[in-house]
Nucleic acid binder design. Structure first.
Lengths: 100, 100
DNA sequence: AAATCATATCTATATTTTTCGATATGTCGA
DNA sequence: TCGACATATCGAAAAATATAGATATGATTT
């Protein structure tokens, strides 16, 4: 976990929102069509609709968040689901506590 | 305290280091000439020497950190001392805990 | 009052980030 | 296998950030 890289992700309102939304998928997104749970997170299309930005922008965001380790993608057929990576988020906290 | 603004500060290695150094001024900086304590923090020149960047860059950094509320400046004669603003740093933690 | 010192601000350039439309890739259904 | 669909990647333009040198400001000293 790299503090600067994670901080870059967090220095954008939409990306912070995505992490927030993914904390409670049931409350923030409609149910998926292929599966009846959010165990693997939420598909890109739903996140895009909620954020109101272009498909390519959201995909780029999710990619940078994945690079930073903050989210984990899972393919289900033609959809990619993204969920939070709680371990890395926790690691960010504890490192900040040390460093800051 | 604005999460995005603070995160922008933290998305730069040198600025993170400055916050780290200011946590233990005695360990990271030589004593000041005019006062024998670090109660108001550390003067810009010392921070600049330690960071190895230009005076204007460090001044700009410190200004952005102050805008974000992370540090507090105090004038002592011709020197400006900067110290951490622990309240805002704590607020950042707790907001992150909620949000993330 | 002038010279000096510490810091802040201004101006400019290089780099990075943001964001999109277009296109490519991979998957499913007909 | 072809077309439709979801997502990823590419290429580009605009905006923001990084960084420095030059200059301004404010304080101290002589």
């Amino acid at each position: 976990m790299n503090v600067v890289e994670v901080s870059k992700v967090l220095s954008n309102e939409t990306r912070v929102n995505i992490l927030k939304w993914l904390k409670e998928p049931e409350a923030n997104f409609p149910p998926h069509q292929d599966i009846d749970h959010f165990d693997d997170g939420v598909c890109v299309g739903y996140i895009q609709d909620k954020a109101g930005l272009s498909q390519s922008t959201i995909s780029t965001y999710l990619n940078s968040m994945q690079q930073a380790g903050l989210v984990i993608p899972t393919r289900h057929g033609k959809w990619t689901y993204y969920r939070r990576n709680e371990e890395v988020i926790e690691a960010y906290y504890s490192t900040l506590k040390e460093v800051l």
